Amino acid sequence: MRLAKNIFSPKASRIIRVLLIHAKEGWTVEGLSKEAGVSLGFTHAVVMSLIQQGHVYRDNLYKLRVSDPVRLIQRWAAYHNYVAMNVFFRYHTFERNIEAFFSSIRKVKNLKYALTVLAGAHVVAPYVRPTTVHFYIKKAKDVETWVKLLDLRPVETGGNVSMVLPYDEGVFYGVSRVNGLKVVSKVQLYVDLFNYPARGEEAAKVVLKALEEEWRS
C-alpha cells in the first residue's frame, strides 16, 4: 500500500484543503483527485495516509469523510509556516485608512489576488485591526502592475503592503468575495494565521470559531 511521505506537502495540502472546505461532504478518490487537481495515484496515497492516521474514514456508502476537521486543521496549521514558505514583495503605501486602501483594491479587475493573514481576517472575521496588508498574487510579473495601480513605494525593510507569491497555487482554491474583496478560504486563512507573528494566533482563534460554526451547521 503506497502512502504519502508528507500529508502536509504543498501538493498533498491541496487534498486536505478540499476535504476541510467541504468537510460535510463525502468523496470518492476520483472526485477528490479531480477537485484538488492532483493525480489519482497521489490522491490515493494521501487518502491512505489520512485513513491510517485517523483523519479520514469511509462511511457506509464507502465515501471518504473527515473524522475531526478541527484536529486535522490544527495539525496542518502547526506544520505550516506562512512566513518561511512564501516569497514576499514588500512595499509601502501612504494611505493610512485601511478601508480606503481596500477601496483601491476593489477597483482592480483583471489581476488574480486573495487577501490573507490579518487583512483577510479583518474582512471575514473582524477582530484585530491590521497595520499591514498581505495578499497572494498569481505571478511575480504582476507586482509591477500592482505597484502602479495601488501607488506603492519600494522599501528596503519593513513596509506595510506585501504581495505574496504563494508556495502553491492551491491557496486560491475556495477564494471568496466579501464586500467586493477577494479573500482566501477560511481554511487557508486559519493555517496562514496560526504561526504568523503580531497577533496571528489570536486572529486564528476567531477564524477557527467561525469554521467550527460552519462545520456544525
Rank of each mutant, 00 (worst) to 15 (best):
G54P: 11
R65E: 02
V128Y: 09
M85Y: 11
G159S: 07
F135Y: 14
Q53G: 05
E99M: 09
N110S: 10
L165W: 05
G120E: 06
Q74H: 14
Y173I: 13
V18Y: 07
W146D: 04
S176L: 12
H80I: 03
W146N: 03
D151I: 15
K63T: 00
E213I: 14
Y190R: 12
L115V: 13
S39F: 06
V29I: 15
L165I: 12
Y91D: 01
S162D: 12
S9R: 04
A84F: 10
W76R: 00
E95M: 12
Q74W: 08
F101V: 10
V70Y: 02
W215Y: 02
P126K: 09
L3A: 00
A4G: 07
K109G: 01
E30N: 15
L50T: 03
W215Q: 00
A12P: 02
K11M: 08
L189E: 05
P126M: 08
I51M: 14
L181C: 01
V128R: 14
L40Y: 15
R216L: 14
Y91E: 06
E30K: 15
K205I: 01
N6V: 02
N97I: 00
A203Q: 15
K138V: 06
V147Q: 07
R90E: 09
E212N: 13
A84P: 00
Y82R: 12
S33W: 04
E213F: 13
V187D: 01
V56R: 14
K109Q: 10
V117E: 06
G200Q: 04
V191K: 10
R96E: 14
N81M: 08
G200W: 02
V128G: 14
R71P: 06
Y173R: 10
S185N: 03
P69Q: 09
K24H: 12
A203Y: 07
T93K: 05
A4Q: 05
